[in-house]
Design a binder for these strands. Structure first.
Length: 286
DNA sequence: ACGAGGTCCTGCGAGC
DNA sequence: TGCTCGCAGGACCTCG
């Protein structure tokens, strides 16, 4: 079975679960167990930046969980593909401590833990200016009220690369990873290998709707869990039961019954699709 | 600008 | 049964 990555819906779910547990808490005793997840900050600076600070806001940007501290500094955790963020009442057990990357005792007696088995996740600590520069390089939020079809069209228009690769490019569009790219393209009945600038207006409109629908439905289902991902309360998501293509290669299309195919020819990542519904002509190695 | 490929990391499962 | 090895993946990087 393929292993999912926390994408936008999973991080949104985590953030919603963590927000009431973390907001207004003091970070009393931060501990870092692996420094290879740090990006642009040393262990010493990270811990010094966290110790004694109060968490004033918890929110999501793209696939990042962002913790705004009372110093104006932001702790940013991107959970990579196996990252989990949890709050324990009291202290976690030794078993729960396994694979812990960052833990922090909080005022009120609870403990925050970022756990990441494969440590492909990233931790950043950015001041106001650093954050502004960082977020400016990420594309627009597809679920934002002011994100329109024209914005998606503009993001696709300048690229001859495969549309699947383009919608997964975080600099063009925020939060869409492999699972939801596959699902959105299937639901929009678009060939994932189609060059992005070759989509006609009706295809762009369908893709716009399918991206927003699939992300919204996944949030409502608390995300997709195959093995690693857990919500902020440790529960499993349930969107895996509503997937149409991801992880279903060799099985019948839910829409037309044709056998779903899989290829790695787009950016080396697993692309699952229906030849018939998505009118795919040229993908090989499937 | 674009594609291809390597790097990070660990658990798992296929294959011998 | 016990081992090795390839694969999974996002983001970032270099090379051609």
């Amino acid at each position: 079975m393929n292993w999912p990555v926390p994408e936008l819906p999973e991080v949104e779910t985590i953030v919603r679960d963590l927000r009431p547990e973390l907001t207004s808490r003091l970070i009393e005793n931060p501990r870092l167990f692996y420094s290879d997840v740090l990006y642009g900050v040393t262990s010493r600076k990270l811990l010094a930046g966290l110790r004694g600070r109060r968490i004033v806001e918890v929110f999501r940007r793209a696939k990042h969980a962002v913790f705004l501290l009372d110093s104006g500094v932001r702790l940013i955790i991107q959970p990579g593909m196996s990252g989990v963020m949890l709050v324990y009442r009291g202290s976690p057990s030794a078993a729960e401590q396994r694979y812990a990357v960052l833990t922090a005792e909080l005022s009120g007696g609870s403990t925050f833990m970022y756990r990441d088995v494969r440590r492909l996740g990233t931790i950043l600590l950015l001041d106001e200016q650093g954050w502004r520069a960082y977020t400016a390089r990420i594309g627009p939020e597809p679920l934002a009220d002011d994100f329109r079809v024209a914005d998606l069209a503009a993001r696709l228009g300048g690229s001859r690369q495969a549309v699947k690769k383009v919608i997964m490019d975080q600099h063009r569009l925020a939060g869409v990873g492999n699972i939801y790219a596959n699902e959105a393209l299937f639901r929009a009945r678009i060939d994932p290998s189609l060059p992005a600038d070759r989509l006609d207006p009706s295809q762009v409109a369908r893709l716009y709707r399918s991206i927003r629908t699939v992300l919204s439905q996944a949030i409502a289902s608390q995300g997709t869990t195959f093995r690693d991902y857990r919500t902020g309360t440790g529960a499993r998501g349930s969107f895996q039961f509503r997937l149409h293509v991801y992880g279903r290669e060799g099985r019948p299309c839910r829409r037309c019954g044709a056998t779903l195919a899989m290829t790695h020819s787009i950016d080396g990542r697993a692309t699952t699709f229906c030849w018939r519904c998505q009118a795919v002509r040229s993908l090989n190695d499937a």
